[in-house]
Structure formats: structure tokens, C-alpha cells
Amino acid sequence: MATLEVEGIQKSFGGVQAVRGVSFAVEPGEMLALIGPNGAGKSTCFNMLNGQLRPDAGRVRLQGRDITGLKPREVWRLGVGRTFQITATFGSMTVRENVQMALLSHHRRLGQLWRPVARMDAAEADALLARLGMAGQAGRPCGILAYGDLKRVELAIALANQPALLLMDEPTAGMAPQERVSLMALTAGIARERGIAVLFTEHDMDVVFSHADRILVLDRGALIAEGAPQAVRNDPRVREVYLGSGATSGH
């Protein structure tokens, strides 16, 4: 069974159709990329998957269960982790504490009033951070972190949920090219190892074509192509959209 099944989701804002009837599925352990030019509806699509936006029509299923219209926190409870295009972390906490929060939430211990956080799930958080190459930064406040590192923190937070599905909106934006490759390789490794389905959007075509198992191409709210990287690369409509919009790979 596919981890995520999307059936004909639609969304319009004040008469403008941002997403028109998109359907696809993600399998466990699969890296699925969602690409398309600016304004194609990638973020809207993403936000409907984890509950930030409610689709006007269509269904979203997670491991067979209908999650359409659930709130983001309910979607998280069902095993979805997500990273944001513009990072969102808790600026007044350290890197470790950020991950601990996700762990505590996952273990449903947020209501506790007595035991200090410092002594809860710290080892688990450190292990996760070490896995992402952030062990050295664990004690630093998130407020002063470099942007690339914040992206890693977000990934650690998402992974803390033991997710079945990982939603990553522009996971490598703002990183140096070298870093991008290593982060995506790491993500792909973890995904395969744990059988996590990964859906990501990305501008960097090198990243997309070297790490995605499959690619979806969105243009003006509709899917125009779907398939393996090589097939998509050669698809004439995709070439037209990208050349027409002036965007090329690797900007």
C-alpha cells in the first residue's frame, strides 16, 4: 500500500485556481520530487497535504486513512514530519531542545509540569543530531544558527516523529551546493533504511535528478508530467515549461 495517496485535490484563492485536480501516490522508502516553475502551485499543494490548507475538493489518504481537512497537529500525530520553505524553529531554544520538543510531542509528554526538559529525551535528540552531522551544534541557540544548519535542524525535528511520510518544502534552499548534495544523500539513505516516504519540492535540478526516484511536474496548478528522472528530463512539455519560463537547472 502506498504511504500517501492524493486524489484530485483542488484549491482556489479568490477565483484563481492554484491547484486543479492533482493526484499522485508516494510509496514507502520512495523519494518523490515535486517540481515546477514559480507559482505552479507546489507550496499550496504541500500545505494541503499536512493540513495547513483545506482542499476545496479531493482526498488525501495516509496509509489508507483519510486525513483530508485534519489540522496540522493531527496530521503530525498520524506520522508525518515536515520542513518549511522558510525555516520555522523555536528561536529561544537550543538545537537540542528543538529536537527534544519534537520527541516529547511524539511521546506525548508535553503536558508534564515537573521534570525538567534538560533530562528528557536528550540522548535520543543527540543521536538524531549526530546522524545529521549536527552533534557539534547541539548546544547552540537556534536563533543564531546559519541557514543551512537550520534546515538540518528542521529535518531532525521532522525525523523525531518516526514519520511514515516526510514532507520537505525546498529542503536545500540557501545551502552551498556541496552541502545540498550531502544533505539529500543523507535524507535518501535514512528514508530507504526506515521505509519513509519522502515528498519534496526543489528548485535545484541537480539535486532533483540525482536524488529523486520519481518526479512530478506541476504547471499552473496541474500535473503535466510524472515519471522517472530520465523520462521527465526528456518530456517535451516539461522542457517547454522550463525553457518558456526562462528557468534552467542549477541556478
Binding site: R73, M101, L110, I157
Partner: peptide, 26 residues
């Protein structure tokens, strides 16, 4: 003590970033 406990952290979490807090189930 409460501020140092998970509940207090959750309070700060929703203050720091409502988006992220919601996304991790708070």
C-alpha cells in the same frame, strides 16, 4: 519548574513559532 518542564517549553514553542509548534503536534 514548570517553565523548565515540557509544558513550559511548549508555551515558549507556540510563542516562538506558531507554525512550527502546530507542525509538531502542539
Amino acid at each position: 519548574r514548570v517553565v523548565h518542564a515540557p509544558f513550559g517549553y511548549a508555551l515558549r514553542a507556540q510563542r516562538d513559532s506558531a507554525l512550527r509548534a502546530e507542525a509538531i503536534g502542539i
